[in-house]
């Protein structure tokens, strides 16, 4: 008999199959890459996988939840290929994944993640926990690490979400390319421009007029814009704010009410007032 599309042959082991496994079973997602230590034996490979994700992504907690910002530049080597890239991606109503690294892999990961959360909710009839979501991204990164070792597809994301369970609060995580997850108390930054940003956020948090968590929305947006502008000053791979083309960074916030994408006019207004 011709094999049917519906397999309906789940093996009930007690654990539910996760969405990436389902995709792999159907041949719709490349298998987890095997980490082969011999591949990175040559010097060129070694160089290519040192962290040079060409972008700047930052996130910090402020009075209204978490703010996530990313510049718009996409580069290939030292060429700018796109100046309107969106690297701050909505995964579900309360979760944002911001990406630094290879866009093809990162966007695919975001897509898998988005569908994973929904697949879980629909099959299990409950929302996936924040810990489960954070772990799901970690697993995707680990599955990808074999490719990173081969010099392709490095992704270093930030994950921001709102935990509405027992102790409602905004949560912020950053990752390394192997999939280790770290919860950030106040702020996180990733990408090639991140050292400068980290310096600014540390400074503001400790010696600024207010700590980051006390900032109102406009103040938070101003700091994010200043940080990205600073990063762009020394990092060619970071777009910062394009003053002539009027291209502004993407800024989103996550709160109890969900994700809000700040309108460009608002960012432009804050930029004019506090940055330019």
């Amino acid at each position: 008999m011709e094999p049917s599309l519906v397999t309906l042959d789940q093996i009930f082991s007690g654990a539910s199959e996760d969405f990436p496994e389902l995709l792999r079973r159907k041949g719709l997602l490349s298998p987890a890459a095997i980490v082969d230590p011999t591949v990175r034996a040559t010097g060129s490979h070694q160089q290519s996988w040192t962290p040079t994700e060409a972008t700047t992504i930052l996130a910090f907690k402020f009075s209204g939840g978490v703010l996530v910002a990313g510049d718009r530049r996409a580069t290939a080597g030292n060429t700018v290929v796109y100046d309107r890239a969106d690297k701050v991606l909505e995964i579900d109503r309360h979760s944002i994944m911001a990406i630094a690294g290879v866009p093809a892999t990162a966007w695919e990961m975001a897509r898998v993640l988005e569908h994973s959360f929904q697949y879980f909710r629909r099959t299990q009839l409950q929302e996936m926990s924040v810990d489960g979501k954070v772990r799901a991204l970690s697993k995707l990164l680990r599955d990808n690490f074999g490719f990173v070792m081969q010099g392709v597809g490095m992704v270093v994301p930030i994950f921001a979400t709102y935990d509405s369970n027992s102790n409602p609060e905004a949560r912020l995580y950053f990752y390394d390319a192997m999939g280790a997850q770290f919860e950030a108390a106040d702020y996180a930054a990733t990408g090639s421009g991140s050292p400068a940003v980290r310096g600014i956020l540390y400074y503001e948090n400790h010696w600024g007029e207010k700590s980051l968590k006390q900032l109102g929305e406009d103040e938070a947006v101003a700091i994010a814009l200043r940080a990205l502008d600073t990063a762009a000053e020394s990092d060619t791979a970071t777009g910062g704010v394009d003053r002539t083309g009027e291209i502004f960074p993407i800024i989103k916030t996550v709160s109890r009410d969900g994700i809000m994408t700040l309108p460009e006019e608002k960012i432009a207004a804050v930029f004019k007032k506090s940055v330019a």
């Binding site: 599309l5 519906v6 397999t7 309906l8 389902l22 995709l23 159907k26 569908h115 629909r122 099959t123």
Partner: peptide, 13 residues
């Protein structure tokens, strides 16, 4: 139900 969700989800993906 699982079969239907599986199919719709993989198609949508």
């Amino acid at each position: 139900r699982m079969g239907a969700i599986e199919l719709a989800s993989t198609e949508g993906f």
